[in-house]
């Protein structure tokens, strides 16, 4: 992408396009990666609700895979996940491993 020059910018760095966070991928910030264990998922969608970005995909009302492009690895989804019979449906693993 060609970067704009100083004369082409909006005054005060105001962003005029709504919903443009989709253009800003933050996945590379992550040091811990959430892993979805479908067998423990009760489809409560708490993860989707609590995710501060848009890393949880929902398809036809059901939990789908993570979109790691937008996951900073904050771990909120893993913390909130009630899981099944004491087994979490989301666990955090170190990226380095």
């Amino acid at each position: 992408m060609k970067l704009k020059g100083w004369g082409e910018l909006t005054p005060g760095a105001v962003i005029l396009e709504a919903g443009n966070a989709v253009e800003f991928k933050t996945g590379s910030w992550r040091s811990f990666r959430p892993i979805w264990k479908e067998e423990n998922c009760i489809q409560c969608l708490f993860c989707w609700l609590y995710c501060p970005d848009m890393a949880i995909k929902v398809k036809d009302g059901k939990r789908a895979e993570f979109d790691y492009d937008y996951c900073k690895g904050c771990g909120t989804c893993a913390l909130e996940c009630p899981g099944k019979k004491g087994q979490k449906a989301i666990v955090m693993v170190e990226e380095a491993k």
Binding site: L3, K4, L9, A13, I15, A18
Partner: peptide, 19 residues
């Protein structure tokens, strides 16, 4: 709808200062 106060990283910060 507009957003005020976004994070501007080294690729654009200097252009905003020059403006």
């Amino acid at each position: 709808p507009v957003s005020y106060g976004p994070l501007i990283l080294p690729d654009y910060y200097m252009e905003f200062r020059k403006a």
